[in-house]
Design a protein around this nucleic acid. Sequence first.
DNA 1: GTCAATATACTTGTATACAAGTATATTAGT
DNA 2: ACTAATATACTTGTATACAAGTATATTGAC
Lengths: 239, 239
Amino acid sequence: MGGKKEYIYPLKWIANASMGVRLACELRMRIISGMIEKGTVLSENKLALEFEVSRSPIREALKVLASENIIRLERMGAVVVGLSEKDIKEIYDVRLLIETFVYERIVKMDTSELVKELSKIHEMMEVAIKYRDADEFSYQDVLFHETIIRSIDHSYIMLIWNNTKPVMESLILLSMRMRLEEKYDDFPRILKNHKVYIEAIKIKDRDIMIQALHQNFDDVQGKVEDLWMSQQMLTKGSE
Amino acid sequence: MGGKKEYIYPLKWIANASMGVRLACELRMRIISGMIEKGTVLSENKLALEFEVSRSPIREALKVLASENIIRLERMGAVVVGLSEKDIKEIYDVRLLIETFVYERIVKMDTSELVKELSKIHEMMEVAIKYRDADEFSYQDVLFHETIIRSIDHSYIMLIWNNTKPVMESLILLSMRMRLEEKYDDFPRILKNHKVYIEAIKIKDRDIMIQALHQNFDDVQGKVEDLWMSQQMLTKGSE
DNA sequence: GTCAATATACTTGTATACAAGTATATTAGT
DNA sequence: ACTAATATACTTGTATACAAGTATATTGAC
């Protein structure tokens, strides 16, 4: 009843999206962050009441979350599934699968335009860090990888990305917010890592590409550990 | 106005699904088969009128199709995108990607239960052919691959499968219906191919697995060619 | 005839209403 | 005290209503 009114998902990212999409983003963040605990049964009516909207956008949001396996629509109520450690490992399996595939294509392409785009994003990330803007940094980080994937113009790889992106985004966002406060030293390393990515794409060296990829995933593994910490904090904080 | 009332998607597969899901399946089939031509702009209101339902289930269906990249939701109207030859190639890229990943896992598993399940499905397929039931054959064919994928218990691989399955299912269904009438000889070969699949899983021979996989895709490439033929027929027939 | 302003017939997104179904609480019977 | 039947308070899925926005047609001025 009443419920938290403050959104933890950056509102400006979804300013002109429909309420359904906005709610999906917000609920996703709350579920992944642990604010909404696993096993909770969400009711369309209660959510509608809490967010002061009708059931229509709520239904839309729940459909989206169900398609991401974050909740499970049952006959009565939507059960919060959330992310297990296994799930997170599996998301990275998929990212590794996709990005490896993408790299195979990239080595056959003209990458000059892509490199330019990535360099721009990289500089944006630097600025974001300079001004200690974790949200902006996360945004650019996700955009970085999306730009690489988009470059090969493969609609079904893109479809997979679109299906995994929301969860990735939430994970990264939560992790970066936390690091900004507690592990600020991480950022130079992350930036350097992205630099390696760009270089690998520029010279089309598959070995360095794969290496950079794995470095990034090791990094990301760290992120995930951070996430668990932040979840612990949040659940402790709410009790 | 009025429109075709006959469903081309097997109704019994979705007998107890919601109208939204049913409509998604039917519209998908019509789009992939070419009955609804690319570039057509679908209006929620017109569809609601044509299928004699309200806009709610129509909206649901359109969201589903948009998430499969079959249509594109724009500010006014949903534009039918359909499948290009490139799209179909890309779907098979993804299937190859997934199934290769799955096989890597399978060789590390106890596959006795899986082999038993697949054998059962294989026999079902034999019966389906004996009674010249293209729909049932397609159903079991899709189930065969889904069973393999499901066996590794990987929720995000499953998520990808779930996103590509509907389109695959439609492609296979259309192709099988056609073959039953015009290329009946294909079926023994397809069955034999699935037998090889099972054997490869049983003895965990990665080489045979990959080989069977590629055989299946060659086969599937044939399917796709058939599809284009059937699309040609359909578009010719409707004009 | 050409251009601008208005009118119109669409469109989507959200709210609300209602029917049909399902779990839980309550009551009745023994 | 325990089971069976009913009542209730939920649930979802669909229909309908309405507001706000957008393309197209129509009108009017020149």
